[in-house]
Write a protein that binds this DNA or RNA. Structure first.
Lengths: 243, 243
DNA sequence: TCTATTGACTTGTATAAACAAGTTGACTAT
DNA sequence: ATAGTCAACTTGTTTATACAAGTCAATAGA
């Protein structure tokens, strides 16, 4: 029930990095020192460090130590998608005041074409939600989601205007675990021009993805159409050894 | 010296998933069964499974089993960036015949402006390489790289025309470990229009990133400008628990 | 028939320990 | 002085074990 032991350790080290206790290029204390500090084994420390590594904050170096490769200057974009975050969450993390406007809410049944686009099987009953995400007065994201009705029969427009993820997790007790994201640039469609403030541009950055719950059910297909100049996505990767 | 024990296991399971031995929705054998099959402990199995999970192929479910959430239909794009791959590597993985054309090769010194753009300190001596990546006869990527000269004094145009990564890893023995990537959509610049076949579009998908070697030295800043309709990037993420 | 409990599974977390392997600096022998 | 060796660090891999916790079906009891 309580949080795992590696989590507070992960958070504390992460805080120290983000707040500048360790600067870009610095080396963290060794794993052995950490085991003494936190009273746990190396495995637990290594788990916390592994998380921070996969976030692109740390670079462990065999035989030398663990180096900090995060610099605060580089990460000043509005939204950095490094995990599965809802719009409201990303906004509150960046302490922005934002508004959500629902511009479409309907029930649909997946046909062949929608099935190919979303990955839902044909015949599945879905909620189709269209929302505009506003930062201040500026609309910056046109969000189009399809939710599997059977997993959330009670979903309505009011919930959509607040936070669907909050509803799923808090009210329904659903656990969202994994998502696959796909990023592309696309020609603007009429809705983009109608809803977003593209100031003359005719293209958008599109992030689409499938989201799974803990039972392995894909319950959401989402497509966010972003005003290009306002977003960026950071992904970090670890190179595979050549074999 | 030999590859770690989890690696062949990872590869074999990965192969089984990609080749369809396990279909979308199937459950893998349990970790205990795998320990018998491979003659190792659960830890080693879990490591292999963890890699596949972070790639978005698997979804472990507490108390139930490990489910396959990869379906071959979804992932048919030309380039999926799930790790650090050079163009030639991605191309050969997709068994494409490709050509690289060097359209610019010069030595520059980082000024204030370039420093902000790339993250190299002002005054650093750099190689500035511009390359066109062709798939068949179609140019699809305009690649602009800045390499830290001190790490590879001998870099020349001929090497750039082949594979710089191959040169760094094989010839110089450098190990490339980590990169941070940033994706955005941008208005096409004259070079894009000149070099790429945008068939009327006026925007490109831009992937920029910093690359580190095993000593923690950032030795490359790269910016790839893609024809939008030909690429997509898949990232998978695991949602953090709300605490 | 229905409900509750148990028990046998599953994955998740954590400890402890050992050895492999890369790095670094000090020390030694030439 | 210089090159080589060694010892003391570092992170990386693997084993073995234990327990926690979620799932599910069979079983026992009402």
């Amino acid at each position: 029930m309580p949080s795992p032991k590696y989590e507070p350790i992960y958070k504390e080290i992460r805080n120290e990095i983000l707040s500048g206790v360790y600067a870009y290029g610095d080396y963290l204390p060794s794993e052995n020192e950490y085991t003494q500090k936190y009273g746990c084994t190396r495995n637990t420390i290594r788990r916390a460090i592994g998380l921070l590594t996969s976030e692109g904050l740390l670079l462990p170096q065999h035989g030398r130590g663990v180096q900090v490769i995060y610099s605060p200057d580089t990460g000043k974009s509005l939204f950095t998608v490094g995990g599965i975050e809802s719009f409201s969450e990303a906004a509150s993390r960046n302490s922005l005041r934002v508004k959500t406007r629902v511009v479409g809410f309907e029930e649909v049944t997946a046909d062949e074409q929608l099935s190919i686009k979303t990955g839902f099987d044909p015949g599945k009953e879905l909620f189709h939600v269209q929302r505009i995400r506003q930062f201040g007065n500026k609309p910056i994201i046109f969000d189009e989601n399809w939710f599997l009705k059977s997993e959330m029969p009670e979903l309505n427009e009011k919930i959509a205007a607040a936070s669907i993820y909050r509803y799923l997790e808090m009210e329904l007790g659903m656990t969202i675990t994994t998502s696959k994201r796909r990023v592309s640039a696309e020609q603007a469609i009429p809705e983009d021009i109608q809803y977003l403030d593209l100031h003359g541009l005719d293209f958008v950055l599109v992030v689409s993805g499938q989201v799974f719950n803990s039972r392995g059910v894909m319950f959401e297909f989402t497509q966010s159409r972003h005003v290009p100049d306002r977003v960026c996505f950071i992904e970090s990767a670890v190179r595979q050894k050549i074999s």
